[in-house]
């Protein structure tokens, strides 16, 4: 084609085998964690222990998604903490609202 000469010269680099292998390893870990969640879903009685295990495993999965897939763990520290520290408000909000909900139930 006539305009082909205007196209820039693109150097395609070969696949980074090491990096791709690492990504699939993260995917495998997430699949295993989800599998463990399913096992606990059917074997444990509902209660604080079950909820705590689910919350812990969810945070593990969230860590892998944000840290590896979204690459945040490899960004500079300022960016890392700018995203992470505001999440403290969410933790506070969660604790406050669950406490509030239980009080409403108790007052009914």
């Amino acid at each position: 084609m006539a305009h082909h000469s205007e196209e820039p010269q693109i150097t395609v680099l070969p696949p980074d085998k090491e990096k791709i292998k690492k990504l699939w390893r993260v995917a495998l870990i997430m699949a295993i964690v989800t599998g463990i969640e399913f096992i606990f879903a059917f074997t444990l009685e509902a209660g604080h222990l079950k909820t705590s295990i689910f919350v812990a495993l969810t945070i593990v999965k969230a860590g892998y998604i944000v840290g590896e897939f979204m690459h945040l763990r490899h960004e500079v520290k300022v960016l890392y903490y700018s995203i992470l520290i505001p999440m403290v408000f969410v933790v506070w909000f969660l604790v406050a609202m669950i406490y509030e909900g239980l009080s409403i139930l108790g007052a009914k």
Binding site: L13, P15, I20, L23, A27, A31, T34
Partner: peptide, 23 residues
């Protein structure tokens, strides 16, 4: 859940390919 996690994996592979300019 499996479908969404898999599509996240394919997305990250697309990003990796983008770094290598591999259209």
């Amino acid at each position: 859940t499996f479908i969404l996690i898999m599509s996240s994996v394919t997305m990250v592979l697309a990003v990796e390919a983008g770094h290598r300019m591999d259209r």
